[in-house]
Lab assay of single mutants.
Amino acid sequence: ESETFDVELTKNVQGLGITIAGYIGDKKLEPSGIFVKSITKSSAVEHDGRIQIGDQIIAVDGTNLQGFTNQQAVEVLRHTGQTVLLTLMRRG
């Protein structure tokens, strides 16, 4: 069981404050995608409180990250504006 949710964030001096990890899993058993690996102290993400380590980032400002490499996803996140809309999925 999984839930998908949107989080809109405004960057602070730390930026968004997440590091991400790309993961290619076994299609049947484990998900592939871009996941939140860590959250920086005092960052926008930590202050917001809704995003957790292990959440999958589905889209950034409407750009679907399906099939993106870790590096491609980093580039998408790097080129966002001051306000960012993240679409995430959390597995229950």
Rank of each mutant, 00 (worst) to 15 (best):
E1G: 10
E1R: 07
S2G: 12
S2V: 10
S2C: 10
E3W: 13
F5W: 07
F5M: 05
F5G: 02
F5I: 07
F5E: 03
D6W: 02
D6F: 08
D6I: 09
V7K: 00
V7H: 03
V7M: 00
E8M: 13
L9E: 02
L9M: 06
L9D: 00
T10K: 14
T10L: 05
T10Y: 08
K11G: 10
K11Y: 04
N12T: 14
V13G: 15
V13M: 15
V13L: 14
V13C: 15
V13Y: 12
Q14L: 10
Q14I: 09
Q14C: 11
G15Y: 03
G15T: 07
G15N: 07
L16E: 04
L16M: 08
G17A: 03
I18W: 04
I18A: 03
T19S: 10
T19A: 08
T19W: 03
I20C: 09
I20Y: 10
A21H: 13
A21E: 15
G22D: 15
G22A: 11
Y23L: 11
I24Q: 14
G25T: 13
G25E: 12
D26V: 09
D26L: 08
D26P: 12
K27A: 11
K27M: 08
K28A: 11
K28W: 11
K28I: 13
L29R: 14
L29G: 12
L29Y: 13
E30F: 08
I34K: 03
F35K: 04
V36W: 00
V36F: 05
K37S: 09
K37P: 02
S38F: 05
S38W: 05
I39W: 03
T40L: 12
T40F: 08
K41V: 05
K41H: 09
S42M: 11
S42D: 14
S43L: 08
S43P: 05
A44M: 12
A44Q: 09
V45A: 15
V45R: 07
E46L: 07
E46F: 12
H47F: 10
H47C: 13
H47S: 12
H47D: 15
D48F: 03
D48S: 08
D48Q: 07
G49A: 06
G49Y: 04
G49H: 06
R50Q: 07
R50Y: 02
R50H: 05
R50S: 07
R50D: 04
I51Y: 02
I51S: 02
I51M: 03
I51A: 01
Q52G: 06
Q52W: 06
Q52A: 08
I53Q: 06
D55Y: 01
D55L: 00
D55G: 02
D55A: 03
Q56A: 04
Q56N: 03
Q56L: 04
Q56P: 01
I57F: 02
I57N: 02
I57H: 01
I57C: 03
I58L: 13
I58F: 02
I58R: 01
A59C: 07
A59Q: 06
V60R: 00
V60I: 14
V60Q: 06
V60L: 02
D61L: 01
D61W: 00
G62R: 09
G62A: 03
N64D: 13
N64H: 10
N64V: 09
L65N: 00
L65P: 02
L65M: 12
L65R: 00
Q66Y: 08
G67C: 06
G67F: 05
G67W: 07
G67T: 08
F68C: 12
F68I: 09
F68K: 10
T69I: 02
T69K: 04
T69H: 04
T69Q: 03
N70A: 14
N70F: 14
Q71Y: 07
Q72P: 01
Q72W: 02
A73T: 05
A73N: 00
V74R: 14
V74E: 15
V74W: 11
V74S: 13
V76D: 00
V76N: 04
L77F: 08
L77M: 10
R78P: 00
R78Q: 11
R78W: 06
H79A: 15
H79L: 06
H79K: 14
H79C: 13
T80H: 01
G81W: 06
G81A: 03
Q82P: 14
Q82K: 13
Q82I: 06
Q82T: 10
T83M: 05
T83Y: 04
T83R: 13
V84C: 07
V84Q: 04
V84N: 03
L85E: 08
L85N: 13
T87Y: 00
T87P: 03
T87I: 01
T87A: 01
T87N: 03
L88P: 01
L88W: 01
M89F: 11
R90Q: 03
R90I: 02
R91E: 10
R91W: 08
R91K: 11
G92E: 15
G92Q: 13
